[in-house]
């Protein structure tokens, strides 16, 4: 029987089920089911090795908030957050320049975007070399007359998180910049033309036209900055093997699970992180209003 002989009503049912069966099975197996399991583990002292799940109630959660080596590492994440704010300011500035009358715009954009697509391990190795003590960065500082700033960029616990946050800024600024640039390019030109006719200067057009119109995209980028800072992992993991002075909440979570075999506690940490991210997102959505009227 040819398929067209089947009525559209029956076809509809067949197609919807056939098209969704495999994707939903995969989504359930690798995303939804693990998420539920994570929640369950978080109330146990499961060690990942034996199949026993001793119930410990909220003990793991109490442990997280009372043990400074667990919750305290959020201080390290703070460096990434502050770096992320700087990243947003610089990205917006570069996007504004790229959006103005300028030669080689595509060339600039093409080069400035490169860090974002490079392999993270390669990026970290490059910076590890620059940060050697004494190394390239120290030499450059000396060359430009800032020799006094030379330091042990990775070995010094007071500096290491800032050094790593800079690598993060270097890697992700291009992404932020491209989003700002796309938003700027979608702003209607005639608004600017009439502002210029009214005698508005560059700062005034930026302050009263560009900035208000970018409100929601700035909020989206800040949201990505916050969740990115909370979830920092690759850079400290590769550069310092998640050494105590540079551990972030996520590297600590993975260590607790895969090095110390304390899956229960690690699951609770993961749940805490997800809850914080969701709270941040909801607050953000409330601030934006509907959160879907973007660009």
């Amino acid at each position: 029987m040819r398929i067209t002989k089947i009525g559209y009503k029956t076809q509809r049912i067949i197609l919807i089920s056939a098209f969704l069966l495999v994707p939903l099975a995969l989504l359930t197996t690798f995303s939804l089911y693990p998420a539920l399991k994570l929640l369950f583990y978080s109330f146990t002292s499961f060690n990942g090795l034996t199949n026993v799940y001793p119930w410990v109630g909220i003990h793991n959660y109490i442990e997280i908030f009372s043990n400074p080596s667990l919750f305290g590492v959020f201080l390290h994440n703070l460096s990434y957050f502050i770096g992320g704010l700087v990243q947003n300011v610089l990205a917006l500035l570069l996007a504004l320049f790229l959006n103005s009358k300028i030669r080689f715009r595509n060339g600039f954009r093409a080069i400035l975007f490169v860090p974002y697509i490079l392999n993270s391990v390669a990026i970290v190795y490059m910076f590890q070399y620059l940060y050697q003590d004494p190394g390239v960065l120290d030499m450059v500082l000396k060359f430009v007359g800032l020799g006094g700033l030379q330091a042990d960029w990775i070995g010094n616990d007071k500096l290491v998180n800032w050094s790593l946050a800079f690598v993060s800024l270097w890697e992700f600024l291009p992404f932020t910049m491209v989003i700002y640039l796309a938003a700027l390019q979608s702003l209607p030109r005639d608004m600017y033309e009439s502002a210029v006719l009214d005698g508005a200067g560059a700062w005034q057009t930026f302050r009263f036209i560009t900035l208000p119109n970018l409100r929601s995209i700035i909020q989206i980028n800040l949201l990505l900055t916050v969740s990115g800072a909370l979830e920092s992992f690759n850079i400290p993991f590769i550069m310092t093997n998640a050494a105590p002075g540079a551990a972030t909440f996520l590297t600590q979570t993975m260590n607790v699970a895969f090095v110390f075999d304390n899956y229960g506690l690690a699951s609770a940490m993961a749940v805490v992180l997800v809850v914080i991210v969701v709270i941040v997102i909801s607050v953000q959505r409330k601030l934006i209003g509907q959160g879907d009227d973007v660009v």
């Binding site: 995303s31 089911y33 693990p34 990942g48 992992f233 996520l250 993975m254 997800v274």
Partner: peptide, 15 residues
């Protein structure tokens, strides 16, 4: 989308 894969690794490992 809201739950980053990275945080769920602890449970995905068992799966």
């Amino acid at each position: 989308i809201f739950i980053p894969t990275m945080t769920v690794q602890v449970a995905i490992f068992g799966v």
